[in-house]
Every structure is written in structure tokens, then in C-alpha cells.
């Protein structure tokens, strides 16, 4: 089994790769869309702004390949937000996998939300195997995806938002599993075990 990590210049690739190294899971860095053909599963990492990320995904052909794929795909942080129809960040049209709108946290909250917060499961998922409900994971973000029927877990930061979502073969976490210690690694390993 091989995991493709999509490289579209949007950061924390190294950390995800390091985590997979530790878990002894085979992976490669996908630099162009047709690289994904060789993969069994795909990870879409992401740090940075929605606008430039979408531009890069579109110009590289990754955007179309992601929308078409039937392989399990895990979006991380910005990767989750790109699943939406639209993001208020730079007023960006996103991948349109989940019909929701990504919003900026209201001004009464500090932005970015930075630190460890509780992830409350709202649905069962093989991603949560051996992870207790209400465990802490590490978040860094200023925008959020509202809860919807695709929400697997939610988190309270003044606003209750989607911290884990799934639609068909598309999974995503708003937090960084690669930076959330043991339980984060567990979640990554659970994703890699999905059939």
C-alpha cells in the first residue's frame, strides 16, 4: 500500500512525511496530478491561505484529479476547508465536495485559534478506532467549516465547528494529526488502514 502526499507548496508536508516514516507506512510525494494514479490513498495537507492553495491545485491539475478520485483521501487543516464550496478567505471557490461555506471566526474570538482543543465525536468512524471521545488535538486556524450532516466530530471554540468530516471517500480533519502526539499518529494510522 502506498500513500501519496500532495505537494502543492502549501507547507507542513515534512511533518506529515515524518509521521508516516515513524508509522512505517510507505508514501511518496505527488508533484503532479497523474502521480496520484500510483497511490492507494491520498493525503492533502495544507497550511496557508485558501486562495493561493486553490490556484495551485487548479493550475497543477490536482483539483480535478481530487474531485474525480474514488481513493480514500484525507484533507488536513486547510485541506479540510478546501473541501467546501466556498471559503470567505480571499473569497475562494473551493473543491465543492461538501456543500458548505467556510467562515472566519467572529471578532470576539482570538484568531487564529491556536492550541489543543477537544474533539467530540458525533458519528462513528473507523478513523476514531482506539481514540477516546473528547480527546485533545492540535488546532491552528482562523476559518472554520460549520457543522453539517457530513460532520463526524465537532469542536467548541466559541462557535461549534466541524473538526472531522467525511463524505464518501473524502475524509478531513481541521486539526493537525501529525502534530497531535500519540492520538494524532493513531488517527493517521487508522486512515492508512481504511479499505
Amino acid at each position: 500500500m502506498k500513500i501519496a502526499i500532495i505537494d502543492y507548496d502549501a507547507g507542513n508536508l515534512r511533518s506529515v512525511a515524518n509521521a508516516l516514516d515513524l508509522l512505517q507506512i510507505e508514501y511518496f510525494i505527488a508533484k503532479q496530478a497523474n502521480d496520484l494514479e500510483a497511490a492507494d490513498k491520498i493525503i492533502l495537507p495544507g497550511v496557508g491561505a485558501a486562495g493561493s492553495a486553490m490556484q495551485k491545485l487548479i493550475s497543477s491539475g490536482f483539483a480535478e484529479a481530487i474531485k474525480q478520485t474514488k481513493k480514500p483521501l484525507l484533507g488536513i487543516c486547510l485541506g479540510l476547508q478546501l473541501f467546501a464550496d466556498f471559503s470567505e478567505e480571499e473569497n475562494t471557490d473551493c473543491l465543492g465536495i461538501i456543500p458548505e461555506k467556510v467562515k472566519l471566526f467572529p471578532p470576539f474570538l482570538k484568531t487564529p485559534q491556536m492550541g489543543w482543543n477537544q474533539v467530540n465525536f458525533t458519528n462513528k468512524s473507523p478513523l476514531f478506532e482506539e481514540i477516546p471521545d473528547a480527546s485533545y488535538f492540535y488546532f491552528v486556524h482562523s476559518y472554520y467549516l460549520p457543522t453539517s450532516k457530513y460532520t463526524l466530530a465537532q469542536t467548541d471554540y466559541g462557535i461549534t465547528f466541524s473538526s472531522v468530516v467525511q463524505k464518501d471517500n473524502f475524509y478531513a480533519t481541521q486539526f493537525h494529526p501529525e502534530k497531535s502526539g500519540e492520538l494524532g499518529l493513531k488517527l493517521l494510522s487508522n486512515f492508512c488502514k481504511l479499505c
Binding site: G115, W116, Y157, G158
Partner: peptide, 9 residues
């Protein structure tokens, strides 16, 4: 801010 449900540590 003070009344919102916020579990950030």
C-alpha cells in the same frame, strides 16, 4: 467571549 462555549486549553 465570556459566555461562549470554548474548550480550547
Amino acid at each position: 467571549r465570556i459566555t461562549a462555549k470554548n474548550t480550547l486549553t
